[in-house]
Amino acid sequence: MADEHGKATQSAVRERNLTTALQLVLSGDGLATRAAIARRTGLTSATVSSLLAGLIADGLVIEGRLAESTGGKRATTLRVDAEHNVLLSVIVQPGLVRGAVVDLLGDVVTSIAHRTTSTATLDDVRSVVRRLAAATTARVTAVGIQVPGIADGDLIRESVQLGWVDVDLGRELSGIVSAPVRLVNDADAEAIADYEVSDEFGANLLFVSLSTGVGAAVIVDGAVLAGASHRAGEIGHVPVLFGDDAPVCACGNRGCLEEVVSVTSLLGLPHGADLEAVDVAALAALPESRERIATGARTLARALLMVGAALDVPNIVLGGAAPKLGADFIGHVRAEAARHPVRAAMPLSFRYAKTALEQPFRGAAQYALQSTLGVSWAR
């Protein structure tokens, strides 16, 4: 038993060191060397050479040009083999399934969009994954799938927007690709992408995604909080309006936050409308929309005062399609939060997300990369 324990410990240490070495190569911008990795990690040159030999044999790392001379023999640089290893990133929305082939440096190689005639189905997701797999000759390292709902391992526990309950998406996609399938909630994916590229708000924030639905992700000390049952941030179906005249939500309840502050509701669009197919900014400028936007912003601010105080997370990032609403919406949110300061709680700061609109596939791809290889595109 002692020998088995020792072997297991040695294996775990080697795996951790392999991950560290790969992260240093990935973040080295093609300039990493064996000697530099040894200095950064404190490992011996022989150990580092062994680790890199394994990563090269696995096809994840390749040798590049010779580094600049520092007086002795010129070292060989190392970089990840982004050309021959890719990730598939898929975003599932009620009326639209989008996907991209993303290389290991985070760059999109190719992307596709598949619009559905009704709510997206498993067949729609399978079709997009098949098309992406056929679009690349590189090895697929992992598949990241971003869904509006509760993702728990291989299962989508529930998605009100899609009408899915306990869907084993990993099993549903088996046979299409041999790579692991990693599911991630849409707000979590957007939060991961935004956090990786921006240090404006530090390591503690609440990311609120407003699109066809409403979801949130909590980042504490740089890590996304999952919650006891992977439901942390599911604020969209909390009632905020009460009475018989409160709007009926797709979940069956009345007055849910989603029915008041989702971008589709703010613009007066039907549930599940394809926001990629409309000019959100133009619709937001209409008089009837501006009234709904002001009311929705006040409601959202009041809800976030409670959430921010409960979590002691004072920084709020508004993502999804919210940035397309422009300065008026976030201005109303800021003003309402300032009108109702919470004693003993830090005042809330707000900004729009920086990444999701320009790089929509980055979040699911980053999650798949981190879950499979243990590395990330560092800020």
Score class of each variant (00 low, 15 high):
E4G: 08
H5L: 13
K7E: 14
K7Y: 09
T9D: 14
A12Y: 09
V13R: 14
R14G: 02
R16L: 12
L18F: 05
L26G: 00
I37Q: 00
S50T: 07
L55I: 04
L60I: 08
E63M: 15
A67R: 01
A67V: 02
R74L: 05
L78R: 00
L78I: 06
V80A: 01
L87E: 06
L88I: 15
Q93D: 11
Q93R: 15
D103A: 01
L104K: 01
G106P: 00
S111W: 07
T117N: 14
T117R: 14
D123M: 15
D123H: 15
R130E: 11
L132E: 03
A134Y: 09
A138E: 08
V140L: 03
T141D: 13
G144I: 04
V147G: 06
I150F: 00
A151M: 02
D154H: 08
V160N: 05
L162C: 12
L162G: 14
D166P: 09
V167Y: 10
G170H: 01
R171M: 07
I176P: 07
V177K: 03
S178E: 14
P180S: 01
V181F: 02
R182Q: 15
L183D: 02
A187T: 10
E190W: 06
E196V: 04
V197T: 06
F201I: 15
G202Q: 09
N204G: 11
L205W: 05
F207M: 14
V208R: 04
S211T: 12
V214E: 04
A216N: 10
V218G: 06
D221T: 07
A223Y: 08
G236E: 06
H237I: 13
V240C: 07
V240K: 01
F242C: 06
D244W: 11
P247M: 13
C251T: 13
G252S: 15
G252V: 15
N253H: 09
R254A: 11
R254S: 12
E258I: 08
G272I: 08
L275R: 02
E276V: 14
L286H: 10
E288M: 13
R292N: 05
I293L: 12
A297R: 06
T299F: 10
L304D: 05
V307N: 08
G308D: 14
N315D: 15
G320L: 08
A321W: 09
D328C: 02
F329K: 01
R334V: 13
R334L: 10
R339K: 12
P341I: 15
P347C: 12
F350W: 09
R351H: 11
L357S: 11
Q359L: 11
P360D: 13
A368E: 04
S371I: 10
S371N: 12
G374K: 04
V375R: 00
